[in-house]
Protein backbone atom coordinates (compact mmCIF):
# COMPACT_ATOMS: atom_id res chain seq x y z
CA UNK A 1 0.00 0.00 0.00
CA UNK A 2 2.75 2.40 1.00
CA UNK A 3 4.57 1.62 -2.21
CA UNK A 4 1.53 2.61 -4.25
CA UNK A 5 1.04 5.76 -2.24
CA UNK A 6 4.71 6.59 -2.62
CA UNK A 7 4.50 6.02 -6.36
CA UNK A 8 1.96 8.85 -6.47
CA UNK A 9 3.03 11.20 -3.67
CA UNK A 10 6.79 11.12 -4.15
CA UNK A 11 6.77 12.82 -7.60
CA UNK A 12 4.12 15.30 -6.50
CA UNK A 13 6.37 16.64 -3.77
CA UNK A 14 8.10 18.62 -6.53
CA UNK A 15 6.60 21.88 -7.83
CA UNK A 16 7.52 21.13 -11.43
CA UNK A 17 5.74 17.77 -11.23
CA UNK A 18 2.60 19.41 -9.88
CA UNK A 19 2.59 21.99 -12.67
CA UNK A 20 3.31 19.31 -15.24
CA UNK A 21 0.48 17.13 -14.00
CA UNK A 22 -2.06 19.96 -14.05
CA UNK A 23 -1.13 20.78 -17.64
CA UNK A 24 -1.17 17.09 -18.61
CA UNK A 25 -4.67 16.65 -17.20
CA UNK A 26 -6.01 19.79 -18.85
CA UNK A 27 -4.49 18.89 -22.21
CA UNK A 28 -5.66 15.29 -21.89
CA UNK A 29 -9.20 16.37 -21.19
CA UNK A 30 -9.66 18.88 -24.01
CA UNK A 31 -7.86 16.67 -26.54
CA UNK A 32 -10.03 13.69 -25.56
CA UNK A 33 -13.30 15.59 -25.96
CA UNK A 34 -12.28 16.96 -29.32
CA UNK A 35 -10.91 13.62 -30.49
CA UNK A 36 -14.41 12.08 -30.29
CA UNK A 37 -15.58 14.49 -32.97
CA UNK A 38 -12.43 14.16 -35.08
CA UNK A 39 -12.61 10.36 -35.09
CA UNK A 40 -16.31 10.34 -36.00
CA UNK A 41 -16.07 13.09 -38.60
CA UNK A 42 -13.10 11.39 -40.28
CA UNK A 43 -10.91 14.38 -39.45
CA UNK A 44 -7.99 12.57 -37.80
CA UNK A 45 -5.68 13.80 -40.53
CA UNK A 46 -6.93 17.35 -39.91
CA UNK A 47 -5.38 17.27 -36.43
CA UNK A 48 -2.14 16.12 -38.01
CA UNK A 49 -2.31 18.94 -40.56
CA UNK A 50 -3.16 21.79 -38.23
CA UNK A 51 -0.53 20.82 -35.67
CA UNK A 52 2.30 20.69 -38.21
CA UNK A 53 1.17 23.98 -39.71
CA UNK A 54 1.57 25.98 -36.49
CA UNK A 55 5.40 25.95 -36.72
CA UNK A 56 5.84 28.88 -39.14
CA UNK A 57 3.30 30.84 -37.08
CA UNK A 58 5.41 30.39 -33.97
CA UNK A 59 8.59 31.62 -35.65
CA UNK A 60 6.88 34.58 -37.33
CA UNK A 61 5.17 35.60 -34.09
CA UNK A 62 8.60 35.54 -32.39
CA UNK A 63 10.02 37.80 -35.10
CA UNK A 64 7.08 40.20 -34.83
CA UNK A 65 7.28 40.23 -31.05
CA UNK A 66 3.74 38.82 -30.68
CA UNK A 67 2.63 36.05 -28.30
CA UNK A 68 3.73 32.74 -29.80
CA UNK A 69 0.30 31.22 -29.12
CA UNK A 70 -1.29 33.87 -31.33
CA UNK A 71 0.99 33.07 -34.25
CA UNK A 72 0.47 29.35 -33.77
CA UNK A 73 -3.30 29.75 -33.70
CA UNK A 74 -3.38 31.91 -36.82
CA UNK A 75 -1.15 29.54 -38.79
CA UNK A 76 -3.08 26.45 -37.67
CA UNK A 77 -6.44 27.91 -38.55
CA UNK A 78 -5.03 29.27 -41.80
CA UNK A 79 -3.95 25.74 -42.75
CA UNK A 80 -7.43 24.34 -42.10
CA UNK A 81 -9.12 27.12 -44.09
CA UNK A 82 -6.61 26.91 -46.96
CA UNK A 83 -7.22 23.18 -47.18
CA UNK A 84 -10.97 23.71 -47.44
CA UNK A 85 -10.54 26.43 -50.06
CA UNK A 86 -8.08 24.47 -52.22
CA UNK A 87 -10.23 21.37 -52.06
CA UNK A 88 -13.30 23.28 -53.22
CA UNK A 89 -11.40 24.91 -56.07
CA UNK A 90 -9.26 22.10 -57.44
CA UNK A 91 -9.73 18.54 -58.61
CA UNK A 92 -7.33 17.15 -56.02
CA UNK A 93 -8.87 15.15 -53.17
CA UNK A 94 -8.94 16.53 -49.65
CA UNK A 95 -6.31 14.18 -48.17
CA UNK A 96 -3.84 15.06 -50.92
CA UNK A 97 -4.51 18.80 -50.58
CA UNK A 98 -4.06 18.54 -46.83
CA UNK A 99 -0.81 16.63 -47.26
CA UNK A 100 0.60 19.35 -49.49
CA UNK A 101 -0.59 22.27 -47.37
CA UNK A 102 0.60 21.02 -43.99
CA UNK A 103 3.92 19.55 -45.05
CA UNK A 104 4.56 22.74 -47.02
CA UNK A 105 3.84 24.91 -43.99
CA UNK A 106 5.85 22.61 -41.71
CA UNK A 107 8.81 22.80 -44.11
CA UNK A 108 8.49 26.58 -44.25
CA UNK A 109 8.48 26.59 -40.46
CA UNK A 110 11.70 24.54 -40.35
CA UNK A 111 13.40 26.82 -42.90
CA UNK A 112 12.39 29.89 -40.87
CA UNK A 113 13.38 28.28 -37.60
CA UNK A 114 16.88 27.53 -38.79
CA UNK A 115 17.23 30.98 -40.34
CA UNK A 116 15.85 33.02 -37.45
CA UNK A 117 17.61 33.02 -34.09
CA UNK A 118 14.89 32.32 -31.47
CA UNK A 119 14.94 31.51 -27.77
CA UNK A 120 12.93 28.32 -28.41
CA UNK A 121 14.19 24.76 -28.66
CA UNK A 122 12.93 22.89 -31.71
CA UNK A 123 12.74 19.75 -29.60
CA UNK A 124 10.39 21.42 -27.15
CA UNK A 125 8.12 22.68 -29.91
CA UNK A 126 7.99 19.26 -31.53
CA UNK A 127 7.72 17.06 -28.45
CA UNK A 128 6.80 19.40 -25.62
CA UNK A 129 8.54 20.06 -22.34
CA UNK A 130 5.98 19.14 -19.79
CA UNK A 131 8.19 19.32 -16.73
CA UNK A 132 9.59 22.66 -17.82
CA UNK A 133 6.27 24.52 -17.75
CA UNK A 134 6.10 27.64 -15.64
CA UNK A 135 3.10 28.94 -13.73
CA UNK A 136 2.49 31.36 -16.60
CA UNK A 137 2.25 28.42 -19.03
CA UNK A 138 -0.20 26.61 -16.77
CA UNK A 139 -2.37 29.72 -16.69
CA UNK A 140 -2.17 30.11 -20.46
CA UNK A 141 -3.13 26.48 -21.06
CA UNK A 142 -6.05 26.77 -18.64
CA UNK A 143 -7.17 30.04 -20.21
CA UNK A 144 -7.53 28.31 -23.57
CA UNK A 145 -8.60 24.84 -22.46
CA UNK A 146 -11.34 25.75 -19.98
CA UNK A 147 -13.48 27.89 -22.34
CA UNK A 148 -12.94 25.26 -25.06
CA UNK A 149 -14.14 22.51 -22.71
CA UNK A 150 -17.16 24.64 -21.75
CA UNK A 151 -18.05 25.24 -25.40
CA UNK A 152 -17.80 21.52 -26.20
CA UNK A 153 -20.01 20.66 -23.23
CA UNK A 154 -22.69 23.17 -24.20
CA UNK A 155 -22.69 22.35 -27.89
CA UNK A 156 -21.82 18.66 -27.70
CA UNK A 157 -25.14 17.43 -29.09
CA UNK A 158 -25.23 19.89 -31.98
CA UNK A 159 -21.66 18.99 -32.90
CA UNK A 160 -22.46 15.28 -32.70
CA UNK A 161 -25.47 15.74 -34.96
CA UNK A 162 -23.35 17.76 -37.38
CA UNK A 163 -20.78 14.95 -37.56
CA UNK A 164 -23.45 12.27 -37.95
CA UNK A 165 -25.78 13.87 -40.48
CA UNK A 166 -24.92 17.40 -41.65
CA UNK A 167 -27.81 17.41 -44.12
CA UNK A 168 -30.33 16.81 -41.33
CA UNK A 169 -28.57 19.39 -39.14
CA UNK A 170 -29.06 21.92 -41.93
CA UNK A 171 -32.63 20.79 -42.63
CA UNK A 172 -33.73 21.50 -39.04
CA UNK A 173 -32.16 24.95 -39.19
CA UNK A 174 -28.93 24.47 -37.20
CA UNK A 175 -26.08 26.85 -38.04
CA UNK A 176 -23.97 24.27 -39.86
CA UNK A 177 -21.29 26.78 -40.89
CA UNK A 178 -20.88 27.88 -37.28
CA UNK A 179 -20.49 24.27 -36.13
CA UNK A 180 -18.02 23.42 -38.91
CA UNK A 181 -15.76 26.41 -38.33
CA UNK A 182 -16.34 26.15 -34.58
CA UNK A 183 -14.76 22.69 -34.65
CA UNK A 184 -11.80 23.93 -36.71
CA UNK A 185 -11.21 26.89 -34.38
CA UNK A 186 -11.39 24.56 -31.38
CA UNK A 187 -8.90 22.24 -33.04
CA UNK A 188 -6.44 25.07 -33.59
CA UNK A 189 -6.97 26.34 -30.02
CA UNK A 190 -6.50 22.88 -28.54
CA UNK A 191 -3.23 22.38 -30.39
CA UNK A 192 -1.99 25.75 -29.16
CA UNK A 193 -3.01 24.86 -25.60
CA UNK A 194 -1.13 21.55 -25.87
CA UNK A 195 2.01 23.05 -27.37
CA UNK A 196 3.99 23.52 -24.15
CA UNK A 197 3.09 20.13 -22.74
CA UNK A 198 3.25 17.61 -25.56
CA UNK A 199 4.41 19.58 -28.60
CA UNK A 200 3.01 19.59 -32.11
CA UNK A 201 3.92 16.02 -33.05
CA UNK A 202 2.66 14.17 -29.99
CA UNK A 203 -0.57 16.16 -29.78
CA UNK A 204 -1.68 14.25 -32.88
CA UNK A 205 -1.81 11.04 -30.85
CA UNK A 206 -3.75 12.76 -28.07
CA UNK A 207 -6.26 13.99 -30.65
CA UNK A 208 -6.94 10.51 -32.02
CA UNK A 209 -6.35 7.75 -29.46
CA UNK A 210 -8.91 8.74 -26.77
CA UNK A 211 -11.75 9.01 -29.30
CA UNK A 212 -10.76 5.69 -30.83
CA UNK A 213 -10.70 4.09 -27.37
CA UNK A 214 -14.16 5.51 -26.61
CA UNK A 215 -15.49 4.25 -29.92
CA UNK A 216 -14.37 0.65 -29.43
CA UNK A 217 -15.77 0.25 -25.91
CA UNK A 218 -19.14 2.06 -26.18
CA UNK A 219 -22.22 2.14 -28.42
CA UNK A 220 -23.42 5.63 -27.60
CA UNK A 221 -21.94 9.09 -27.95
CA UNK A 222 -22.28 10.26 -24.32
CA UNK A 223 -20.48 7.24 -22.83
CA UNK A 224 -17.92 7.41 -25.66
CA UNK A 225 -16.92 10.89 -24.56
CA UNK A 226 -16.78 9.90 -20.88
CA UNK A 227 -14.56 6.90 -21.67
CA UNK A 228 -12.34 9.05 -23.92
CA UNK A 229 -11.83 11.64 -21.17
CA UNK A 230 -11.16 8.96 -18.52
CA UNK A 231 -8.70 7.16 -20.78
CA UNK A 232 -6.88 10.39 -21.61
CA UNK A 233 -6.70 11.81 -18.09
CA UNK A 234 -5.80 8.37 -16.69
CA UNK A 235 -3.00 8.05 -19.23
CA UNK A 236 -1.85 11.57 -18.43
CA UNK A 237 -1.65 10.73 -14.72
CA UNK A 238 0.03 7.36 -15.13
CA UNK A 239 2.35 8.58 -17.87
CA UNK A 240 3.47 11.58 -15.84
CA UNK A 241 4.14 9.51 -12.71
CA UNK A 242 5.91 6.78 -14.68
CA UNK A 243 8.12 9.31 -16.44
CA UNK A 244 9.30 10.54 -13.03
CA UNK A 245 10.14 7.08 -11.74
CA UNK A 246 11.71 5.90 -14.99
CA UNK A 247 13.42 9.22 -15.59
CA UNK A 248 11.83 9.30 -19.04
CA UNK A 249 10.40 12.07 -21.22
CA UNK A 250 6.91 12.92 -19.93
CA UNK A 251 4.92 13.80 -23.07
CA UNK A 252 6.07 10.71 -24.97
CA UNK A 253 5.39 8.52 -21.90
CA UNK A 254 1.77 9.71 -21.78
CA UNK A 255 1.34 8.89 -25.46
CA UNK A 256 2.92 5.45 -24.96
CA UNK A 257 0.52 4.66 -22.10
CA UNK A 258 -2.44 5.83 -24.21
CA UNK A 259 -1.39 3.75 -27.20
CA UNK A 260 -0.85 0.65 -25.04
CA UNK A 261 -4.31 1.13 -23.56
CA UNK A 262 -5.79 1.30 -27.05
CA UNK A 263 -3.94 -1.85 -28.16
CA UNK A 264 -4.96 -3.69 -24.99
CA UNK A 265 -8.65 -2.82 -25.49
CA UNK A 266 -8.56 -3.95 -29.12
CA UNK A 267 -7.07 -7.29 -28.06
CA UNK A 268 -9.61 -7.74 -25.23
CA UNK A 269 -12.44 -7.00 -27.62
CA UNK A 270 -11.18 -9.49 -30.18
CA UNK A 271 -10.78 -12.19 -27.54
CA UNK A 272 -14.30 -11.56 -26.24
CA UNK A 273 -15.73 -11.70 -29.75
CA UNK A 274 -13.91 -14.97 -30.36
CA UNK A 275 -15.16 -16.46 -27.08
CA UNK A 276 -18.73 -15.17 -27.39
CA UNK A 277 -21.31 -17.93 -28.01
CA UNK A 278 -22.80 -17.63 -31.49
Amino acid sequence: MNAVLGFITQPLAHDFMQRGLVVALLVGMICAMLSCYLVLKGWSLMGDAVSHAVLPGIVLAFVAGLPLALGAFAAGLGCALATGYLQAHSRVREDAVMGIVFSGLFALGLVLFVKVETDQHLNHILFGNMLGVQLRDVAETALIALPAIAFLLVRRRDLMLYCFDPAHARAIGLQVGFLHYGLLVLLALTIVASLKAVGIILVIAMLIAPGAIGLIVTRRFGPMMVVAVLAATGSSLIGTLLSFHLDAATGPMIVVVQSLLFALLVVIRQVRLALAPH
Binding site: L40, D158, L161, A167, I172, G173, L174, L215, F221
Partner: peptide, 28 residues
Protein backbone atom coordinates in the same frame (compact mmCIF):
# COMPACT_ATOMS: atom_id res chain seq x y z
CA UNK B 1 -38.59 20.03 -44.04
CA UNK B 2 -37.36 16.57 -43.05
CA UNK B 3 -34.60 14.77 -44.89
CA UNK B 4 -34.11 11.01 -45.10
CA UNK B 5 -30.57 10.36 -46.33
CA UNK B 6 -29.40 7.72 -48.74
CA UNK B 7 -28.07 4.65 -46.88
CA UNK B 8 -24.58 5.02 -48.28
CA UNK B 9 -24.34 8.58 -46.91
CA UNK B 10 -24.75 7.38 -43.32
CA UNK B 11 -21.88 6.19 -41.10
CA UNK B 12 -23.54 3.06 -39.65
CA UNK B 13 -20.70 2.60 -37.13
CA UNK B 14 -21.57 5.91 -35.50
CA UNK B 15 -22.17 5.39 -31.77
CA UNK B 16 -25.87 6.22 -31.67
CA UNK B 17 -28.85 4.05 -30.76
CA UNK B 18 -32.10 3.91 -32.70
CA UNK B 19 -33.82 6.18 -30.18
CA UNK B 20 -30.93 8.67 -30.32
CA UNK B 21 -31.37 9.05 -34.08
CA UNK B 22 -35.12 9.62 -33.72
CA UNK B 23 -34.44 12.15 -30.94
CA UNK B 24 -32.29 14.10 -33.41
CA UNK B 25 -35.56 14.98 -35.13
CA UNK B 26 -36.50 16.94 -32.01
CA UNK B 27 -33.35 19.09 -31.74
CA UNK B 28 -35.00 21.98 -33.58
Amino acid sequence: VAYVPQSEDVDWNFPVLVEDVVMMGRYG
